[in-house]
Amino acid sequence: MAQTVAPPEAAERVPPLRRRQRQLPWPLNIYQTAVGKKYVMAVTGVGLLGFVIVHMIGNLHLYEGPSQINEYAEALRDLGGHLVPRTLILWVMRIGLIAMFGLHIHSAWSLKEISRRSSPKANWVSGNKRYPGGQDYVAVNFASRTMRWTGPIIGLYVLFHLADLTWGWWLGGDYIRGDVYHNVVESLSSIPVAIIYIVANVALSVHIYHGMWSAFQTLGVNNPRFNHLRRGLATVIAGAILVGNLSFPIMVQAGLVA
C-alpha cells in the first residue's frame, strides 16, 4: 500500500517505440517518417515501373529482326544526337535508375524494420510467433504478402541480367558487344537461363500488381469515381508486362526467334 502525490506518468506506461530523431532539413525530414519513406518508395516504384514498361516495349523490336533491335540499342546510346557526348544521356538515365533502385530498396528495408519492431513475438513459454494460435488472413493476397520476397528476387535478377547481357560474363566468346539480337538469342536458348528469366519476370509482375495498387493508395490518389479502377489498372499493367517479358524466353526456346 502506498500513497503518493503525483502518480507515475500514466502516459508513459505505454512508451513510444521510437522517439523522434534529430530533424534533418526539409525536405529530407519527410524521409525520416514512415509515410515519407512510403511516399519515396511509391514514387521510385512508379519511376522503375516506367522503366520496366519502356524497356519491355523497346525489346519488342526483337521481333522485327536483328537490325531493328540493334539500331534501337544504338539509338539509346546516341540519345541527344551530336549535341551531347555519346552515351551521356544514357548514363544520366542509368544513374537515375540506380538512385531510384537504391531508394526503393532502402525505404523498403527500413519500413520492414519499423514493422518488425512494432509486431511483438508472443510472450510464450515455447514458440516465437506473433499469434501462436495462428492468424487467419482475409484480405492479404499472394502479391501483397510476398513483396519482401519478390523484391529481392527482382534485385538479384537485375544483377544477373546486367552480368548476362550488358557485361557478357558467361557468354564469354559468344558475347558480341553491340549485337543485342545475337546476345539475347544466344543467352536465352540455354534452358537454365530461360528458366531464370521466366521465374524472375513472374516475380516482377506479381510485385508490380501489388506495388502499383499500393502506390495509388500511398500517393493519396483517391477519387471515388476512379477508385474501383485502381485494382483493374494494376492487373492490366502487371499482366501486359508479364506477357511481354515472358514472350522473349519462350519464343527463343520455341525456336521462333533465332
Binding site: 500500500m1 500513497q3 502518480p7 506506461r13
Partner: peptide
Amino acid sequence: RDLLTGEVRA
C-alpha cells in the same frame, strides 16, 4: 485503486 497494479492512492 489502480486496476492494473492494485495500488490504492489518495
